[in-house]
Design a protein around this nucleic acid. Structure first.
Lengths: 228, 228
DNA sequence: GTTGACGCTATTGTCGGACGATGATCAAGG
DNA sequence: CCTTGATCATCGTCCGACAATAGCGTCAAC
Protein backbone atom coordinates (compact mmCIF):
# COMPACT_ATOMS: atom_id res chain seq x y z
CA UNK A 1 0.00 0.00 0.00
CA UNK A 2 1.41 3.34 -0.99
CA UNK A 3 1.16 5.72 1.87
CA UNK A 4 0.53 8.82 -0.15
CA UNK A 5 -0.36 11.17 2.62
CA UNK A 6 -2.19 13.59 0.44
CA UNK A 7 -2.98 13.99 -3.16
CA UNK A 8 -1.87 17.49 -4.11
CA UNK A 9 -2.51 16.48 -7.69
CA UNK A 10 0.34 17.94 -9.68
CA UNK A 11 -1.14 19.48 -12.78
CA UNK A 12 1.13 17.43 -14.94
CA UNK A 13 -0.55 14.26 -13.75
CA UNK A 14 -4.05 15.43 -14.42
CA UNK A 15 -6.01 14.98 -17.58
CA UNK A 16 -7.55 18.04 -19.15
CA UNK A 17 -11.00 17.02 -18.06
CA UNK A 18 -9.68 16.71 -14.53
CA UNK A 19 -8.53 20.26 -14.72
CA UNK A 20 -11.92 21.44 -15.92
CA UNK A 21 -13.72 19.57 -13.18
CA UNK A 22 -11.42 21.07 -10.62
CA UNK A 23 -11.80 24.52 -12.08
CA UNK A 24 -15.57 24.34 -12.07
CA UNK A 25 -15.61 23.12 -8.50
CA UNK A 26 -13.33 25.95 -7.55
CA UNK A 27 -15.56 28.30 -9.46
CA UNK A 28 -18.43 27.09 -7.35
CA UNK A 29 -16.62 28.00 -4.19
CA UNK A 30 -15.65 31.36 -5.58
CA UNK A 31 -19.05 32.17 -6.94
CA UNK A 32 -18.07 32.15 -10.60
CA UNK A 33 -20.66 29.43 -11.03
CA UNK A 34 -23.97 29.66 -9.25
CA UNK A 35 -26.68 27.11 -8.69
CA UNK A 36 -29.04 26.74 -11.59
CA UNK A 37 -26.54 28.01 -14.08
CA UNK A 38 -26.43 26.17 -17.37
CA UNK A 39 -23.25 24.57 -18.56
CA UNK A 40 -23.32 25.01 -22.32
CA UNK A 41 -20.74 22.89 -24.02
CA UNK A 42 -19.64 25.34 -26.73
CA UNK A 43 -19.16 28.03 -24.11
CA UNK A 44 -16.95 25.85 -22.00
CA UNK A 45 -15.07 24.80 -25.11
CA UNK A 46 -14.05 28.36 -25.84
CA UNK A 47 -13.64 29.22 -22.19
CA UNK A 48 -11.20 26.42 -21.47
CA UNK A 49 -9.85 26.06 -24.98
CA UNK A 50 -10.30 22.34 -25.15
CA UNK A 51 -12.35 20.17 -27.43
CA UNK A 52 -15.95 19.30 -26.87
CA UNK A 53 -15.06 15.72 -26.02
CA UNK A 54 -13.02 16.92 -23.10
CA UNK A 55 -15.73 19.26 -21.91
CA UNK A 56 -18.28 16.50 -22.09
CA UNK A 57 -16.12 14.21 -20.02
CA UNK A 58 -15.82 16.85 -17.35
CA UNK A 59 -19.56 17.42 -17.32
CA UNK A 60 -20.25 13.72 -17.05
CA UNK A 61 -17.96 13.46 -14.09
CA UNK A 62 -19.58 16.39 -12.38
CA UNK A 63 -22.95 14.82 -13.01
CA UNK A 64 -21.85 11.56 -11.47
CA UNK A 65 -20.66 13.54 -8.46
CA UNK A 66 -24.06 15.11 -8.13
CA UNK A 67 -22.71 18.61 -8.62
CA UNK A 68 -24.44 18.99 -11.92
CA UNK A 69 -27.72 17.63 -13.11
CA UNK A 70 -28.09 16.62 -16.73
CA UNK A 71 -31.29 15.91 -18.58
CA UNK A 72 -31.29 14.14 -21.88
CA UNK A 73 -30.92 16.54 -24.79
CA UNK A 74 -31.25 19.48 -22.48
CA UNK A 75 -27.73 19.75 -21.25
CA UNK A 76 -26.42 20.21 -17.78
CA UNK A 77 -26.80 22.83 -15.12
CA UNK A 78 -25.36 23.39 -11.70
CA UNK A 79 -27.59 21.53 -9.38
CA UNK A 80 -29.92 23.59 -7.25
CA UNK A 81 -30.95 21.71 -4.17
CA UNK A 82 -34.53 22.12 -3.11
CA UNK A 83 -35.18 22.40 0.59
CA UNK A 84 -36.04 18.71 0.77
CA UNK A 85 -32.96 17.72 -1.15
CA UNK A 86 -30.81 19.90 1.05
CA UNK A 87 -32.30 18.21 4.08
CA UNK A 88 -31.67 14.80 2.56
CA UNK A 89 -28.07 15.59 1.81
CA UNK A 90 -27.55 17.04 5.25
CA UNK A 91 -28.83 13.91 6.91
CA UNK A 92 -26.23 11.99 4.98
CA UNK A 93 -23.56 14.50 5.85
CA UNK A 94 -24.59 14.10 9.45
CA UNK A 95 -23.63 10.45 9.63
CA UNK A 96 -20.61 10.84 7.39
CA UNK A 97 -19.18 13.65 9.45
CA UNK A 98 -20.09 11.71 12.54
CA UNK A 99 -18.10 8.78 11.26
CA UNK A 100 -15.18 11.00 10.37
CA UNK A 101 -15.18 12.47 13.86
CA UNK A 102 -15.32 9.03 15.42
CA UNK A 103 -12.51 7.63 13.36
CA UNK A 104 -10.42 10.74 13.82
CA UNK A 105 -10.81 10.36 17.57
CA UNK A 106 -9.77 6.73 17.33
CA UNK A 107 -6.63 7.72 15.44
CA UNK A 108 -5.77 10.78 17.48
CA UNK A 109 -2.80 9.02 19.01
CA UNK A 110 -0.90 9.76 15.84
CA UNK A 111 0.99 12.97 16.67
CA UNK A 112 0.97 14.23 13.13
CA UNK A 113 -2.78 13.82 12.79
CA UNK A 114 -3.34 15.33 16.18
CA UNK A 115 -1.34 18.40 15.23
CA UNK A 116 -3.39 18.84 12.08
CA UNK A 117 -6.63 18.59 13.98
CA UNK A 118 -5.47 21.06 16.59
CA UNK A 119 -4.42 23.52 13.95
CA UNK A 120 -7.59 23.23 11.91
CA UNK A 121 -9.69 23.47 15.03
CA UNK A 122 -7.93 26.58 16.25
CA UNK A 123 -8.42 28.31 12.92
CA UNK A 124 -12.02 27.18 12.74
CA UNK A 125 -12.78 28.49 16.21
CA UNK A 126 -11.26 31.83 15.48
CA UNK A 127 -13.14 32.02 12.17
CA UNK A 128 -16.33 30.92 13.91
CA UNK A 129 -16.30 33.91 16.15
CA UNK A 130 -16.01 36.33 13.32
CA UNK A 131 -18.65 37.41 10.87
CA UNK A 132 -16.78 36.67 7.64
CA UNK A 133 -19.01 34.00 6.22
CA UNK A 134 -16.67 33.06 3.43
CA UNK A 135 -13.74 32.49 5.72
CA UNK A 136 -15.90 30.52 8.12
CA UNK A 137 -17.11 28.19 5.39
CA UNK A 138 -13.54 27.74 4.26
CA UNK A 139 -12.39 26.80 7.73
CA UNK A 140 -15.37 24.58 8.37
CA UNK A 141 -14.63 22.66 5.21
CA UNK A 142 -10.99 22.45 6.13
CA UNK A 143 -11.83 21.12 9.55
CA UNK A 144 -14.11 18.47 8.14
CA UNK A 145 -11.53 17.55 5.57
CA UNK A 146 -8.93 17.27 8.27
CA UNK A 147 -11.10 14.96 10.32
CA UNK A 148 -11.63 12.79 7.27
CA UNK A 149 -7.94 12.71 6.54
CA UNK A 150 -7.00 11.81 10.07
CA UNK A 151 -9.59 9.06 9.88
CA UNK A 152 -7.21 7.26 7.57
CA UNK A 153 -10.13 6.34 5.40
CA UNK A 154 -9.55 7.69 1.90
CA UNK A 155 -12.96 6.54 0.74
CA UNK A 156 -14.54 8.56 3.49
CA UNK A 157 -12.38 11.53 2.63
CA UNK A 158 -13.49 11.40 -0.97
CA UNK A 159 -17.12 11.02 -0.07
CA UNK A 160 -17.11 13.90 2.36
CA UNK A 161 -15.41 16.10 -0.21
CA UNK A 162 -18.15 15.34 -2.71
CA UNK A 163 -20.87 15.99 -0.19
CA UNK A 164 -19.40 19.24 0.98
CA UNK A 165 -19.77 20.70 -2.47
CA UNK A 166 -23.47 20.90 -1.82
CA UNK A 167 -22.93 22.95 1.27
CA UNK A 168 -21.16 25.80 -0.43
CA UNK A 169 -24.23 27.54 -1.65
CA UNK A 170 -26.33 27.38 1.46
CA UNK A 171 -26.50 30.15 3.93
CA UNK A 172 -26.89 27.83 6.83
CA UNK A 173 -24.88 29.48 9.50
CA UNK A 174 -25.56 29.49 13.16
CA UNK A 175 -24.87 32.33 15.50
CA UNK A 176 -21.12 32.79 15.92
CA UNK A 177 -21.12 31.88 19.61
CA UNK A 178 -23.26 28.81 19.04
CA UNK A 179 -21.20 27.41 16.27
CA UNK A 180 -17.97 28.11 18.09
CA UNK A 181 -19.22 26.18 21.10
CA UNK A 182 -20.46 23.41 18.85
CA UNK A 183 -17.13 22.94 17.17
CA UNK A 184 -15.24 23.27 20.41
CA UNK A 185 -17.14 20.31 21.79
CA UNK A 186 -16.51 18.24 18.69
CA UNK A 187 -12.86 19.11 18.74
CA UNK A 188 -12.50 18.37 22.42
CA UNK A 189 -14.03 14.94 22.04
CA UNK A 190 -11.84 14.15 19.06
CA UNK A 191 -8.69 15.31 20.80
CA UNK A 192 -9.68 13.33 23.87
CA UNK A 193 -9.84 10.23 21.74
CA UNK A 194 -13.45 9.65 22.70
CA UNK A 195 -14.95 8.23 19.52
CA UNK A 196 -18.46 7.82 20.83
CA UNK A 197 -18.64 11.35 22.11
CA UNK A 198 -17.01 12.78 18.99
CA UNK A 199 -19.56 11.12 16.76
CA UNK A 200 -22.40 12.20 19.00
CA UNK A 201 -21.27 15.82 19.08
CA UNK A 202 -20.62 15.97 15.36
CA UNK A 203 -24.01 14.53 14.56
CA UNK A 204 -25.76 16.78 17.02
CA UNK A 205 -24.14 19.77 15.43
CA UNK A 206 -25.20 18.85 11.91
CA UNK A 207 -28.63 18.10 13.26
CA UNK A 208 -28.84 21.60 14.64
CA UNK A 209 -27.94 22.94 11.21
CA UNK A 210 -30.67 20.83 9.65
CA UNK A 211 -33.08 22.36 12.09
CA UNK A 212 -32.27 25.77 10.70
CA UNK A 213 -33.31 24.77 7.21
CA UNK A 214 -36.92 25.76 7.65
CA UNK A 215 -36.04 29.18 8.98
CA UNK A 216 -33.25 30.36 6.81
CA UNK A 217 -33.65 28.60 3.55
CA UNK A 218 -34.37 30.74 0.54
CA UNK A 219 -35.53 28.80 -2.50
CA UNK A 220 -33.31 31.04 -4.61
CA UNK A 221 -34.24 31.79 -8.15
CA UNK A 222 -34.99 28.37 -9.49
CA UNK A 223 -38.35 27.82 -8.00
CA UNK A 224 -39.77 25.47 -10.61
CA UNK A 225 -38.83 22.20 -9.00
CA UNK A 226 -41.82 22.05 -6.75
CA UNK A 227 -42.48 18.39 -6.21
CA UNK A 228 -42.84 15.91 -3.45
CA UNK B 1 -43.85 -10.61 -8.19
CA UNK B 2 -41.49 -7.77 -9.03
CA UNK B 3 -43.04 -4.67 -7.57
CA UNK B 4 -40.80 -2.17 -9.24
CA UNK B 5 -42.30 0.98 -7.85
CA UNK B 6 -39.18 3.02 -8.24
CA UNK B 7 -38.07 4.82 -11.35
CA UNK B 8 -37.92 2.03 -13.88
CA UNK B 9 -36.01 4.18 -16.36
CA UNK B 10 -37.55 3.37 -19.69
CA UNK B 11 -34.81 2.55 -22.14
CA UNK B 12 -36.07 5.20 -24.49
CA UNK B 13 -35.19 7.87 -21.99
CA UNK B 14 -31.66 6.68 -21.44
CA UNK B 15 -28.59 7.74 -23.31
CA UNK B 16 -26.41 5.06 -24.82
CA UNK B 17 -23.77 5.55 -22.19
CA UNK B 18 -26.42 5.08 -19.54
CA UNK B 19 -27.22 1.75 -21.06
CA UNK B 20 -23.59 0.71 -21.02
CA UNK B 21 -23.13 1.74 -17.43
CA UNK B 22 -26.20 -0.20 -16.47
CA UNK B 23 -25.11 -3.20 -18.44
CA UNK B 24 -21.67 -3.25 -16.87
CA UNK B 25 -23.13 -2.94 -13.40
CA UNK B 26 -25.47 -5.78 -14.18
CA UNK B 27 -22.55 -7.72 -15.54
CA UNK B 28 -20.81 -7.23 -12.24
CA UNK B 29 -23.70 -8.77 -10.39
CA UNK B 30 -23.91 -11.62 -12.83
CA UNK B 31 -20.20 -12.29 -12.88
CA UNK B 32 -19.63 -11.32 -16.50
CA UNK B 33 -17.22 -8.74 -15.15
CA UNK B 34 -14.90 -9.57 -12.32
CA UNK B 35 -12.74 -7.40 -10.11
CA UNK B 36 -9.44 -6.49 -11.64
CA UNK B 37 -10.66 -6.99 -15.16
CA UNK B 38 -9.51 -4.41 -17.63
CA UNK B 39 -12.02 -2.36 -19.54
CA UNK B 40 -10.42 -1.84 -22.92
CA UNK B 41 -12.17 0.80 -24.92
CA UNK B 42 -11.96 -0.83 -28.35
CA UNK B 43 -13.33 -4.05 -26.91
CA UNK B 44 -16.32 -2.34 -25.43
CA UNK B 45 -16.80 -0.45 -28.66
CA UNK B 46 -17.27 -3.66 -30.59
CA UNK B 47 -19.09 -5.37 -27.76
CA UNK B 48 -21.75 -2.72 -27.43
CA UNK B 49 -21.57 -1.42 -30.98
CA UNK B 50 -21.26 2.19 -30.03
CA UNK B 51 -18.57 4.74 -30.66
CA UNK B 52 -15.57 5.24 -28.51
CA UNK B 53 -16.92 8.54 -27.25
CA UNK B 54 -19.88 6.75 -25.78
CA UNK B 55 -17.76 4.06 -24.21
CA UNK B 56 -15.51 6.66 -22.66
CA UNK B 57 -18.45 8.48 -21.16
CA UNK B 58 -19.65 5.29 -19.58
CA UNK B 59 -16.23 4.52 -18.17
CA UNK B 60 -15.90 8.00 -16.75
CA UNK B 61 -19.19 7.64 -14.99
CA UNK B 62 -18.23 4.28 -13.56
CA UNK B 63 -14.97 5.77 -12.39
CA UNK B 64 -16.76 8.60 -10.65
CA UNK B 65 -18.94 6.00 -8.97
CA UNK B 66 -15.87 4.22 -7.72
CA UNK B 67 -16.74 1.03 -9.55
CA UNK B 68 -13.82 1.38 -11.87
CA UNK B 69 -10.39 2.77 -11.30
CA UNK B 70 -8.66 4.60 -14.08
CA UNK B 71 -5.02 5.55 -14.27
CA UNK B 72 -3.81 8.10 -16.71
CA UNK B 73 -2.86 6.56 -20.03
CA UNK B 74 -3.32 3.11 -18.64
CA UNK B 75 -7.01 2.71 -18.98
CA UNK B 76 -9.60 1.48 -16.55
CA UNK B 77 -10.22 -1.72 -14.71
CA UNK B 78 -12.89 -3.00 -12.41
CA UNK B 79 -11.85 -1.91 -9.01
CA UNK B 80 -10.48 -4.55 -6.73
CA UNK B 81 -10.81 -3.56 -3.13
CA UNK B 82 -7.91 -4.40 -0.90
CA UNK B 83 -8.73 -5.55 2.57
CA UNK B 84 -8.17 -2.07 3.94
CA UNK B 85 -10.31 -0.49 1.27
CA UNK B 86 -13.04 -3.01 1.89
CA UNK B 87 -12.92 -2.18 5.55
CA UNK B 88 -13.07 1.52 4.76
CA UNK B 89 -16.05 1.12 2.50
CA UNK B 90 -17.81 -1.08 5.01
CA UNK B 91 -17.43 1.50 7.71
CA UNK B 92 -19.16 3.96 5.44
CA UNK B 93 -21.82 1.43 4.59
CA UNK B 94 -22.31 0.93 8.27
CA UNK B 95 -23.43 4.48 8.94
CA UNK B 96 -25.32 4.78 5.67
CA UNK B 97 -27.30 1.62 6.27
CA UNK B 98 -27.77 2.74 9.84
CA UNK B 99 -29.24 5.98 8.63
CA UNK B 100 -31.47 4.17 6.16
CA UNK B 101 -32.76 1.91 8.92
CA UNK B 102 -33.41 4.88 11.19
CA UNK B 103 -35.27 6.87 8.57
CA UNK B 104 -37.20 3.84 7.44
CA UNK B 105 -38.33 3.31 11.00
CA UNK B 106 -39.38 6.92 11.24
CA UNK B 107 -41.47 6.57 8.11
CA UNK B 108 -42.89 3.16 8.87
CA UNK B 109 -46.33 4.63 9.46
CA UNK B 110 -46.79 4.77 5.72
CA UNK B 111 -48.71 1.55 4.97
CA UNK B 112 -47.20 1.16 1.53
CA UNK B 113 -43.68 1.45 2.78
CA UNK B 114 -44.41 -0.84 5.67
CA UNK B 115 -45.71 -3.50 3.31
CA UNK B 116 -42.58 -3.27 1.21
CA UNK B 117 -40.34 -3.65 4.23
CA UNK B 118 -42.32 -6.60 5.53
CA UNK B 119 -42.12 -8.30 2.18
CA UNK B 120 -38.42 -7.69 1.67
CA UNK B 121 -37.71 -8.77 5.22
CA UNK B 122 -39.64 -12.00 4.87
CA UNK B 123 -37.80 -12.90 1.68
CA UNK B 124 -34.48 -11.94 3.20
CA UNK B 125 -35.07 -14.07 6.28
CA UNK B 126 -36.01 -17.08 4.23
CA UNK B 127 -32.98 -16.54 2.00
CA UNK B 128 -30.77 -16.04 5.03
CA UNK B 129 -31.54 -19.49 6.30
CA UNK B 130 -30.56 -21.14 3.08
CA UNK B 131 -27.15 -21.71 1.67
CA UNK B 132 -27.64 -20.15 -1.76
CA UNK B 133 -25.18 -17.32 -1.52
CA UNK B 134 -26.28 -15.61 -4.68
CA UNK B 135 -29.89 -15.48 -3.64
CA UNK B 136 -28.95 -14.27 -0.21
CA UNK B 137 -26.89 -11.39 -1.60
CA UNK B 138 -29.77 -10.52 -3.87
CA UNK B 139 -32.22 -10.40 -1.02
CA UNK B 140 -29.84 -8.55 1.24
CA UNK B 141 -29.38 -5.87 -1.40
CA UNK B 142 -33.09 -5.71 -1.96
CA UNK B 143 -33.71 -5.30 1.75
CA UNK B 144 -31.21 -2.49 2.01
CA UNK B 145 -32.62 -0.87 -1.09
CA UNK B 146 -36.07 -1.11 0.37
CA UNK B 147 -34.99 0.55 3.57
CA UNK B 148 -33.43 3.36 1.60
CA UNK B 149 -36.55 3.77 -0.51
CA UNK B 150 -38.84 3.85 2.51
CA UNK B 151 -36.52 6.45 4.00
CA UNK B 152 -37.90 8.86 1.44
CA UNK B 153 -34.41 10.13 0.86
CA UNK B 154 -33.52 9.68 -2.79
CA UNK B 155 -29.98 10.91 -2.23
CA UNK B 156 -29.51 8.21 0.36
CA UNK B 157 -31.01 5.63 -1.95
CA UNK B 158 -28.59 6.56 -4.69
CA UNK B 159 -25.62 6.54 -2.37
CA UNK B 160 -26.43 3.18 -0.92
CA UNK B 161 -26.89 1.74 -4.38
CA UNK B 162 -23.44 2.94 -5.35
CA UNK B 163 -21.89 1.57 -2.21
CA UNK B 164 -23.55 -1.79 -2.53
CA UNK B 165 -21.78 -2.37 -5.79
CA UNK B 166 -18.62 -2.93 -3.81
CA UNK B 167 -20.24 -5.64 -1.78
CA UNK B 168 -21.11 -7.88 -4.67
CA UNK B 169 -17.74 -9.47 -4.96
CA UNK B 170 -16.99 -10.11 -1.35
CA UNK B 171 -17.62 -13.41 0.27
CA UNK B 172 -18.49 -11.88 3.57
CA UNK B 173 -21.32 -14.02 4.78
CA UNK B 174 -22.10 -14.93 8.31
CA UNK B 175 -23.49 -18.20 9.46
CA UNK B 176 -27.09 -18.58 8.25
CA UNK B 177 -28.57 -18.56 11.75
CA UNK B 178 -26.54 -15.54 12.81
CA UNK B 179 -27.43 -13.43 9.87
CA UNK B 180 -31.07 -14.39 10.06
CA UNK B 181 -31.17 -13.30 13.69
CA UNK B 182 -29.32 -10.13 12.82
CA UNK B 183 -31.73 -9.13 10.14
CA UNK B 184 -34.71 -10.12 12.21
CA UNK B 185 -33.67 -7.66 14.88
CA UNK B 186 -33.13 -4.89 12.37
CA UNK B 187 -36.47 -5.57 10.77
CA UNK B 188 -38.26 -5.72 14.08
CA UNK B 189 -36.88 -2.37 15.15
CA UNK B 190 -37.77 -0.78 11.84
CA UNK B 191 -41.27 -2.18 11.87
CA UNK B 192 -41.67 -1.06 15.46
CA UNK B 193 -40.84 2.47 14.36
CA UNK B 194 -37.93 2.64 16.76
CA UNK B 195 -35.40 4.70 14.85
CA UNK B 196 -32.69 4.63 17.49
CA UNK B 197 -32.84 0.89 17.87
CA UNK B 198 -33.06 0.33 14.12
CA UNK B 199 -29.93 2.32 13.52
CA UNK B 200 -28.14 0.61 16.38
CA UNK B 201 -29.04 -2.86 15.16
CA UNK B 202 -28.17 -2.10 11.55
CA UNK B 203 -24.82 -0.67 12.50
CA UNK B 204 -24.06 -3.52 14.84
CA UNK B 205 -24.78 -5.96 12.08
CA UNK B 206 -22.48 -4.29 9.59
CA UNK B 207 -19.88 -4.05 12.31
CA UNK B 208 -20.07 -7.78 12.78
CA UNK B 209 -19.49 -8.22 9.07
CA UNK B 210 -16.46 -5.93 9.25
CA UNK B 211 -15.13 -8.11 12.01
CA UNK B 212 -15.17 -11.06 9.66
CA UNK B 213 -12.89 -9.32 7.21
CA UNK B 214 -9.70 -10.57 8.78
CA UNK B 215 -10.87 -14.15 8.85
CA UNK B 216 -12.59 -14.65 5.57
CA UNK B 217 -11.05 -12.21 3.20
CA UNK B 218 -9.17 -13.68 0.31
CA UNK B 219 -7.07 -11.23 -1.64
CA UNK B 220 -8.46 -12.92 -4.73
CA UNK B 221 -6.58 -12.57 -7.97
CA UNK B 222 -5.48 -9.04 -7.38
CA UNK B 223 -1.83 -9.50 -8.20
CA UNK B 224 -2.19 -11.92 -11.05
CA UNK B 225 -3.49 -9.48 -13.62
CA UNK B 226 -5.58 -12.38 -14.73
CA UNK B 227 -8.15 -11.41 -17.32
CA UNK B 228 -10.85 -13.23 -19.26
C1' DG C 1 -56.94 37.56 -27.85
C1' DT C 2 -56.04 32.90 -27.28
C1' DT C 3 -54.67 28.70 -29.10
C1' DG C 4 -52.37 25.38 -31.55
C1' DA C 5 -49.74 23.79 -35.67
C1' DC C 6 -45.60 24.80 -37.95
C1' DG C 7 -40.80 25.71 -38.88
C1' DC C 8 -36.34 27.63 -37.20
C1' DT C 9 -32.41 27.65 -34.21
C1' DA C 10 -29.49 26.26 -30.56
C1' DT C 11 -27.70 22.50 -28.41
C1' DT C 12 -27.04 17.93 -27.50
C1' DG C 13 -25.99 12.75 -28.40
C1' DT C 14 -23.44 10.05 -31.17
C1' DC C 15 -20.36 8.91 -34.69
C1' DG C 16 -15.82 8.05 -37.17
C1' DG C 17 -11.31 9.19 -37.92
C1' DA C 18 -6.93 11.17 -36.65
C1' DC C 19 -2.72 12.39 -34.02
C1' DG C 20 0.72 12.50 -30.42
C1' DA C 21 1.85 10.77 -25.79
C1' DT C 22 2.54 7.24 -22.65
C1' DG C 23 3.09 2.55 -20.61
C1' DA C 24 4.26 -2.10 -21.57
C1' DT C 25 6.90 -5.55 -24.10
C1' DC C 26 10.72 -7.49 -25.83
C1' DA C 27 15.09 -7.94 -28.28
C1' DA C 28 19.77 -6.23 -28.78
C1' DG C 29 23.71 -4.57 -26.52
C1' DG C 30 26.77 -3.66 -22.63
C1' DC D 1 22.13 -10.14 -15.74
C1' DC D 2 20.97 -5.55 -16.29
C1' DT D 3 20.34 -1.64 -19.27
C1' DT D 4 18.76 0.42 -23.36
C1' DG D 5 16.20 1.29 -27.25
C1' DA D 6 12.65 0.00 -30.74
C1' DT D 7 7.88 -1.63 -31.19
C1' DC D 8 3.28 -2.00 -30.06
C1' DA D 9 -1.09 -1.34 -27.65
C1' DT D 10 -3.83 1.86 -25.77
C1' DC D 11 -5.16 6.12 -24.17
C1' DG D 12 -5.97 11.36 -24.13
C1' DT D 13 -7.37 14.70 -27.00
C1' DC D 14 -8.76 16.85 -31.02
C1' DC D 15 -11.60 17.65 -35.23
C1' DG D 16 -15.54 17.62 -38.13
C1' DA D 17 -20.00 15.83 -39.02
C1' DC D 18 -24.84 14.35 -38.58
C1' DA D 19 -29.47 13.37 -36.71
C1' DA D 20 -32.48 14.18 -32.87
C1' DT D 21 -34.52 16.95 -29.64
C1' DA D 22 -36.06 21.09 -26.97
C1' DG D 23 -37.18 25.77 -26.89
C1' DC D 24 -38.85 29.69 -29.31
C1' DG D 25 -41.08 32.51 -32.43
C1' DT D 26 -44.47 32.87 -36.30
C1' DC D 27 -48.69 32.70 -38.04
C1' DA D 28 -53.07 31.11 -39.27
C1' DA D 29 -57.51 29.56 -37.25
C1' DC D 30 -60.85 30.00 -34.01
Amino acid sequence: MPDERRTPKPDSEMSSSDRIVKSILKGLYEGRFVAGQRLVEPDLVSQYEVSRSTVREAIKRLAAMGVVEASLNRGARIRQLSKDEARNVLRIIEVIVGLAARLAAENIADPDGRAQVELALADLLSASKQADRYEFVRQRNRFNRTLARVSRNPELEQMLANLQVHLVRNRLVMQPEDRARSYAMIGAAVLAGDGDEAERQARAHVRRVVGMLDDVYVPAFIGTGNDD
